[in-house]
């Protein structure tokens, strides 16, 4: 098992290094920070609200921001290996395929976590201006990271399906968008009028929006954690199935 973790770490390290060896990491981080700042302070009416809370002005934008930013981080994970032929190299190394899948996931997730951590000035500003609920801030960050993980899982799966990064990006955005929309109030309102309530709840239950909501309010609900965990788990498992198919043909 020890060896398994070492292999995961070796793969993660290479993948993470890949981000920072190219301009990708810096461009991403700068854009991410600019956008979070813009959304929080302009569109989020941070000052006008007069509340020392990050839920509405800051975290509520994350599902929309991640919709494009997370696929742009994860789109290359497998597509690039397939295109350049390094997949053959990687999968003939003495490792189990799951170690590569998890290693790649963790590398990208860690990268997103670094970007997210760099939004700390927003927290400091709030703490300076008022007296925010620290619990809510922490649970917001936890939820945001889990949300990014779920989108990333979907993106890794889509990246394994194609050798074209652009296609991987577009399909990931669409799938994540559907996952987001099915719990967004305007959509659920529409559904309530047309389909039975149990179905509405089912659709809502599959939504990232729905499960991210409680985190923003400072509640870490076990069921929400399970939800994000299962989206990640299901995506990574499906990635292993897809890769088996890719190798067979």
């Amino acid at each position: 098992m020890n060896e398994g973790f070492r292999n995961v770490w070796t793969i993660s390290k290479r993948e993470l290094g890949g981000y920072f060896n190219s301009p990708v990491a810096y461009v991403f981080i700068v854009i991410f920070l600019l956008l979070t700042g813009f959304f929080t302070f302009s569109l989020g009416y941070y000052h006008e609200r007069g509340q020392a809370s990050l839920a509405e002005p800051f975290f509520s934008w994350h599902p929309w921001l991640y919709l494009f930013l997370v696929p742009s981080v994860g789109m290359r994970l497998w597509a690039e290996e397939r295109r350049s032929g390094t997949l053959e190299l990687l999968l003939t190394m003495p490792i189990a395929p799951w170690q590569a899948i998890v290693g790649k996931f963790l590398a990208s997730w860690l990268f997103l976590a670094i970007a997210l951590a760099l939004t700390f000035p927003v927290v400091l500003t709030t703490a300076y201006l008022g007296d925010p609920d620290n619990g809510a801030v922490i649970s917001g960050y936890v939820g945001s990271l889990l949300l990014a993980g779920a989108y990333l899982g979907v993106t890794e799966l889509m990246s394994a399906i194609t050798r074209n990064q652009i296609i991987a990006f577009i399909i990931s955005v669409v799938v994540c968008f559907v996952l987001l929309l099915c719990g967004w109030e305007p959509v659920t309102q529409f559904l309530v009028n047309h389909v039975p309530e149990t179905l509405v709840n089912l659709v809502k239950g599959m939504s990232t929006w729905h499960h991210f909501g409680a985190f923003q309010k400072g509640v870490i609900d076990f069921r929400d954690v399970i939800y994000f965990g299962s989206v990640i788990g299901f995506s990574l498992f499906s990635t292993s199935v897809v890769l088996r198919g890719v190798r067979g043909a």
Partner: peptide
């Protein structure tokens, strides 16, 4: 597979390597 792969070194046809390294 892991025990078998350990014994082998492999040069694939197109000699791929990670271009960003």
């Amino acid at each position: 597979p892991i025990a078998a792969k350990r014994l082998m070194g492999y040069l694939p046809e197109s000699a791929p390597s990670y271009s960003d390294m």
